[in-house]
Amino acid sequence: MKYIIIILFFSMTSLMALPKEKQLVSSEVAINLLENIKDYAIVLGYGEQEVHTFIDPLCLMSQRYLKLLYKRKKKIFAQYTIYLYLHEIKSKKSKKHILNIINAKSSENMLRAIMLHEESYILKDRIDQKNKNIFNDIARVANKIGVNKRPFIMINGKAK
């Protein structure tokens, strides 16, 4: 029994160590999937090329990404339209923050308050069901695409 447990432990460990699949669907499918949730995205810029990014508001790298976007906004926003999809990293426990951003009057301002610490904010506990559905829809598409890191950046249906 002891040996079975050890073998099982090693097998699990090695399975976890396998590189995560980059993207689970083809770029065409990914584009179609993203079309379904485009309306739920926080949109920055007005450029010709679309950049779709899954972020977690409490993820440090997502925060750095957002900071860089605003730092070079003049150039980036002129050339790209950035779609930001809020998708929780389980370990960050950011669902409440995400729902508050979706629920806010200006999602962008709330996003900046939380992620860039530009101003103070209060998190509400009561969130509309409609917004909870948005959170779930984004999560469903993210899982289908295979979003495994944040920020998860996609251009033309392909992930980095």
Partner: peptide
């Protein structure tokens, strides 16, 4: 390379 354990496109 990023040293972030959560994985990142950055």
């Amino acid at each position: 390379s990023s040293n972030n354990n959560d994985g990142s496109s950055l």
